[in-house]
Every structure is written in C-alpha cells, then in structure tokens.
Simulated scan of single mutants.
Amino acid sequence: MRGAAGRVRDRWNTFWFRPEPTSTIAVVRIVFGAVATLWTLSQAPDLLAFYGPTGVLATAPPLGTGSWSVLAVSDRAPVLIALWAATLLGAVGVMVGFRTRLATILLLVGVVSFERRNPEILNAGDVLLRNLAFYLLFAPAGEALSVDRRRRARDRFWEFPLAAPWALRLMQIQLSVVYFTTLWEKLQGDLWRDGSAVSYALRVHDIHRFPTPEFVTGSVVLTELLTFGTLLLEMGLAVLVWNRGLRPWVLGGGVLLHLSIGFSIMVGFFTMLMLTTYLTFVPPETARDLVLSARRRWHGRRTRRRSRSPAGGGRR
C-alpha cells in the first residue's frame, strides 16, 4: 500500500512540479499575446457603443459578491479609452515579454472589466481569453524568448531555464474542461442526439462567412456524420489528449475541426484561442528545437542576402 501511495505521490509531483524547459510556455505566451493584441484592437471601433453609458447597454449589470470591474467606478469615455489603452499595452507587453507579469495583470484587468461591463456581447472565445490570461499570470512566461530575458541575460537569450510547469498544466486541463462542458451541454439538446445539429448550424446564414452547399445541409447522411463525428472528436479531445501516443492524432483532428468552423462561421477569436491552448501540449524539447531551427534558418537567410549584396562582395 505504501509503495502504491508513493508512486501516486511521485507521479503527482512529477506532473505538477518537476522542472522542465520554459520553451513551451514562451511560445504560448507569444502566440497568446498576439491574439490578445488583435482582440483588443478589435474592440476599438465599437468601444463606446459596447461599453459606454450611451451605448447598447446603458447600465452595467450588477456585480456579484466578490466581483470587480474598473468600469464599475466609471464608464465615461476618458476612462474607457484609458482602460483600452492599458489593455493594449498589456497585450503587447505579454507578446514581447516586457515586464511580463505586470503586462499580464494589465491585460487581465482590462479583459475582466470589459467583459463585466457588457456580458451580453461575449462568446466562448472571450471567456477563454480571460482564463488563459489568469493562468499566464502565474506561469514563468517571461523566462525565455522575451525582452525580460534579454535584459537579464542577453548572452543566454536563446536558452530556456527550467521551471515548474504547474500553470501550464492548468492551461492543459482547461482544454479538457472546455470539451467536457461543451460535450455535456450538447448532449442535453435533442438536435445533437438526433444528428441534425450541424445541419441547423450550417443554415444560420447571418453568422456564415461563406454559404454552405445545399448538398451538405440537405443530406441526412452527411449532417449526421458531421454531428456525431463532432461529438466523438470532442470526447477524444477531452480524454485521449492525455495519452501521448494518441495526442497528435486527436489534436490534429481538433485543428481541422476548429479551422473548418473558423473558416465557415464567424466565431470571433474562439478558433485562434483554442489553437493557442493546443500549443500547451507541445513537448518542451519539441518547442525548443522548433524555435532554434527557425533561428538558424533566419540567420542563414540573412547571411545569404548579405553575401549577395554589393557591400558583401557579391555580383551586381
């Protein structure tokens, strides 16, 4: 019994706390920061309409116990613009890794404040953005491939210090939770159980980027295959993603699923943020090798361009 308990404890500690290279979390930070920057920029055209006192929701909904929002103090135009600017600075700071923890706080405060000012315009992508920003706050996100790293150890910029991965594990668990809850909610409805849900989704024209061919929406066989196939894939992504052998296959299927959804239906930033979460499952060694390989190719191209220029002695 003690031996079994010891093995469980060792596996638990290994999963959460055994130090590993920070290459994966660095790549996740960069991609997440880029998506958060785009999300913040997308708010600018409708900032006052979505969140101002003269907009679509003149009065903010009451905050629950323990909830907070900067816009609960004031949602006048100067405050909105200042909060938007701070959120943008935070998103860019996360992307480049400048004062990474402070930048993450700015981003998180901005996202939470905007979402609580007008929850009626939210979708799953906005919620995932908030959750990932929260997890990133506790991660060693600025330890590699960042301005912070360059300032601390310029000569070791391309190294990836070891750190406990527990915050990265929370992001991975978040992926499973998303698929578990999505699957559970879908199974509560008749349309998913009878195989017709995808047919209805593909016929809501006002949210489509491109019209779906009639032979797809009108085919019982195709729509049932798409509906039940989606449910099976989401179950696989919730459970089988933790199996190392099956992980590339289920994640590959998930990439195809989300790219097809993002291509055909306007789902905001949900597709980009889900694919960002997929990156948390990239092994640190693989992430490190990909980064260093990209660096070598970049330097090789620069060297070739210099050698071909007149100043480098190349032919005219």
Rank of each mutant, 00 (worst) to 15 (best):
V111Q: 15
N118D: 11
F98L: 15
G97N: 13
E120D: 13
L122M: 15
S146I: 01
L132M: 15
R149E: 09
A141V: 02
N131W: 05
I105M: 14
P119C: 07
A139T: 08
G97D: 11
A139N: 04
V111A: 14
N123F: 09
L122V: 06
A141I: 00
L132P: 02
D148M: 11
R151P: 00
G125T: 11
P140T: 02
L129C: 07
L108Y: 11
N118S: 05
D126N: 09
G110H: 06
F138Q: 04
G97L: 01
A144E: 10
D126Q: 04
A139W: 10
L122Q: 14
L108C: 10
L128F: 05
A153N: 14
A133Q: 10
E115T: 03
L136A: 12
R116L: 15
I105F: 13
L129S: 04
G125K: 14
G97Q: 13
R99C: 08
G125D: 07
E143A: 13
L102E: 13
D148T: 12
A153Q: 14
E120T: 11
D126M: 08
G125M: 10
A153D: 15
S113Y: 05
L128D: 07
G110I: 14
T104I: 13
E143Q: 11
D148V: 14
G142F: 11
A133R: 06
R101D: 07
S146Y: 03
A124D: 05
S113R: 03
G110N: 05
V111W: 08
R149P: 08
R152W: 01
A153H: 15
G110R: 03
R151F: 02
L145A: 01
N123E: 10
R154W: 15
R154C: 07
R116G: 08
L128I: 10
R130G: 06
R150S: 00
N118L: 01
G142I: 11
R117C: 03
P140R: 01
R99G: 10
N131T: 10
L137E: 05
R154S: 13
G97C: 06
N123Y: 13
A133D: 04
F114T: 02
L106Y: 04
E120C: 00
N131Y: 03
E143D: 13
A133S: 15
V112G: 01
E115Y: 07
R116C: 08
A133K: 07
A141E: 02
G125A: 08
A139S: 08
R116V: 12
R150D: 00
V147G: 05
N131M: 05
E143I: 00
L129Q: 06
L122P: 13
D126L: 07
V112A: 09
S146P: 00
E115P: 07
S146R: 00
S113W: 06
F98V: 12
I105E: 14
R99H: 09
R154D: 09
L128K: 10
P140H: 00
L128Q: 14
R151A: 08
R101T: 15
R117M: 09
G97A: 06
A139V: 12
A103D: 06
R149I: 13
G125I: 09
V109I: 15
V147R: 01
L137Y: 12
P119H: 06
V127D: 10
V147A: 11
N131L: 14
V127L: 15
N118Y: 04
I121W: 01
A153M: 11
R154Q: 11
L107K: 03
L108I: 12
R149T: 12
L132R: 08
R152E: 14
P119D: 04
V112I: 15
